[in-house]
Design a protein around this nucleic acid. Structure first.
Lengths: 220, 220
DNA sequence: GCGAGTTTGTGTACTCAGTCCATAATCATT
DNA sequence: AATGATTATGGACTGAGTACACAAACTCGC
């Protein structure tokens, strides 16, 4: 359950707090090493069969070091997703102010999807069959879902003042659910998947259309 | 992670499989006892501080008996919710066939909410502050969300043949998210909350309106 | 160089959820 | 009774996550 705000757009760091960089023992370049070891092991034997000890052994570090870089095993399932999601705040800032809220909502989610690296399907989904609907997968997924929805709700509340708070949150949650659905169908579409952004927009558009009369100030 | 199909509309049983009832050691009426013990303890000391051993000790049964009735500690957070959700299949069956799919979707969710006992706020939400966004809460919540959404998607797919499967799932997921949002605001609305069904419909209606042009056969 | 402060790595020990398995208890049926 | 089915229970185990103390490695000021 990392904060997904620390994934960094460049792959430089992440992991323990490194505020001013004032000295101290240097990292053993462990985070990337751990990610790679975990990816290998998940491919070889599956997520459930891979223990944290396995991962740290292959990475050549102690077991506790794992928790210096990740707060849960399930974080490993969403590595690329977290990096993409970390861009959400800046995308929200960049959204043009002239746009009606319902359209801005769709555009923001489309832009976020466009930022995702092509062909990068999260391990969570490649490991979906063996783990079915098991707890870690679900917990980690909903945690991310709620964070996105919460940020969107704040965005909408600022752009659509005066609108009932319950409806704002309903719009944010429904849009997030639709976006996640679109991303899911894209990820599971096999080798020749199309554009992630297009798929997300296709799923989100009806939701935004439906909430337009509620969110937007005055219809045309 | 019980199947939430076994909660039974009458409070009779639930727990281990009891297909034909052909004899065998009778239950020590433990399920209800466990529920009560857990509720007391959660109120007294909070969810996180209450271990399964505490619950079973107060209930006067062995620790393993707990897992005869619940598959996870987090099941205790959603007791009434599970009972309400178990009515979904029959509600789906009873939905009038003449209705356009988008309207049937809204009606089904409203009917489901209407079935929920008044004033019954799930423990999950009363324990929300102390446990914040902790894993068990999230995992259990998303599991239930996905089951509802999956059933709705099947319902919609049958009622709206020919519609793209991705859009059907997007509609089901978005509607479920909106419904859950409505239920959440209702539950957190304090002492004088209004009608759950009305709150759910208010949140779901825009989603269904938005998906109407996609789902319904031929607009007027 | 040398110590002070800081950050990361790591070993030990612990709690607790959840699983597995063997066995005892209690019923209905024959 | 003997049998079969079902539930209760105890013991042993795995593995995630936490807490804590301490060692290792670096920077900076002196």
């Amino acid at each position: 359950m990392t904060d997904f705000g620390d994934a960094g757009t460049d792959g430089a760091d992440g992991g323990p707090s490194r505020p001013g960089r004032g000295g101290g023992r240097p990292r053993a370049s462990s985070r990337r090493t751990l990610e790679d070891a975990a990816s290998e092991l998940f491919l070889e034997q599956g997520y459930a069969q891979t223990t944290i000890e396995h991962i740290t052994q292959r990475a050549g570090v102690g077991r506790n070091t794992f928790f210096n870089y990740f707060s849960a095993k399930s974080d490993l399932l969403w590595l690329d997703v977290d990096e993409t999601l970390s861009a959400l705040p800046s995308i929200l800032d960049d959204a043009p102010v002239g746009l009606p809220p319902s359209e801005a909502l769709a555009q923001v989610l489309g832009d976020l999807a466009a930022r995702h690296p092509h062909r990068s399907v999260p391990i969570a989904l490649s490991q979906r069959e063996p783990m079915a609907t098991h707890d870690e997968f679900l917990s980690a997924g909903l945690g991310r879902f709620l964070r996105v929805a919460h940020e969107l709700a704040g965005f909408l509340a600022a752009r659509a003042p005066g609108v009932d708070d319950g409806l704002v949150r309903a719009a944010a949650n429904a849009a997030t659910a639709a976006a996640a659905t679109g991303a899911g169908t894209w990820a599971l579409a096999g080798v020749e998947r199309g554009d992630l952004s297009a798929e997300v927009l296709r799923a989100v558009a009806p939701v935004c259309r439906g909430f337009a009369p509620v969110l937007d100030p005055a219809g045309p």
